[in-house]
Amino acid sequence: MAVELKGLTDNARKTAISELNGRLADSIALALAVKQAHWNVKGRNFIAVHELLDMLHANLQGHVDTMAERVQQLDGIAIGTAQKVAADSGLPEYPTDLTKAEDHIRALSERYRDHGEKLRAAIDATDEAGDADTADILTAASRTVDKDLWFLESHLE
C-alpha cells in the first residue's frame, strides 16, 4: 500500500522521483569512484588522503540512503543496480589507471563539481514542482558535496 502524502501533486511526485533517481545514480557512481581512489591512492600524504576518502564515501552513502528512501515515500522505485547506475549516471567515467594522490584528487574534484551542479538543478526542479521536502534532501546533499569538494581541493594548495 502506498503512503499518501497530502499536499503533493502528481507532477511534484513524478518530478521528485525522476530527479532523485538521477542524483542517486550520480551519487552511487561518485561513491564508487571515491572507493576506486581509496583503494589505489599512493604518494605524499597517503594516510591523510586515504582517510579523507573514507569520510567522503561515508558522506555520500548517507545521502544515497536518504534519497532512495524518499523515492519510496513518494511511491516510486529507487534505482541503484550497478548496470542502471552505469547507464544512468551523468558523471564522467572514473579513470582506473590513476595512482598518484594529486591525480585522484583532481579527478574526484571534477566529478564533485559536476555532481554539485546537478544537485543544484535538481533542487530548483523539485522546489518549482512543489516538493519542498525533496528539495531539502537535495539541499543537504549539495551542502555536503560542496564541503567535501573544499576538503579535496584544499589538498591541491
Rank of each mutant, 00 (worst) to 15 (best):
Q83T: 07
D54M: 15
E51S: 05
Q73L: 13
D114R: 05
E51G: 12
K100W: 07
D97K: 01
G90V: 02
R70W: 09
Y112R: 01
A48S: 11
A107P: 09
M55L: 15
L108D: 06
Q83L: 09
L91R: 08
P92S: 03
Q72V: 13
L108N: 04
I79Y: 03
D127W: 07
R111A: 02
G76A: 05
D97M: 09
T99V: 14
K100N: 08
N59A: 14
R120D: 04
V64D: 00
A107L: 06
T96N: 02
L91E: 13
A125H: 00
Q61M: 15
D54Q: 13
G80N: 14
L56S: 04
A87Y: 04
T126V: 04
G90Q: 15
H104T: 06
Q73D: 13
L53C: 15
E110I: 08
T96G: 12
M55S: 13
V49I: 14
H104W: 05
M55K: 13
D65Q: 02
A58K: 00
A78M: 07
V49H: 00
D124K: 11
F46K: 06
H63P: 09
A68E: 06
D103Q: 02
I79V: 14
H63M: 00
Q72I: 05
A125M: 01
G62V: 02
K118R: 13
M67D: 04
Q83N: 12
E51K: 08
R111D: 01
A48G: 11
H115N: 10
D65R: 08
I123E: 04
N45Y: 09
M67Y: 10
D75T: 02
Q72D: 10
L74P: 01
V85T: 01
V71T: 10
L56T: 05
I123T: 07
A87G: 07
E93T: 03
K100I: 09
Q73W: 06
S89L: 07
S109N: 04
K118I: 09
E51L: 15
A78F: 00
K84L: 15
I79L: 08
L60K: 11
V71F: 00
E117K: 00
A125P: 02
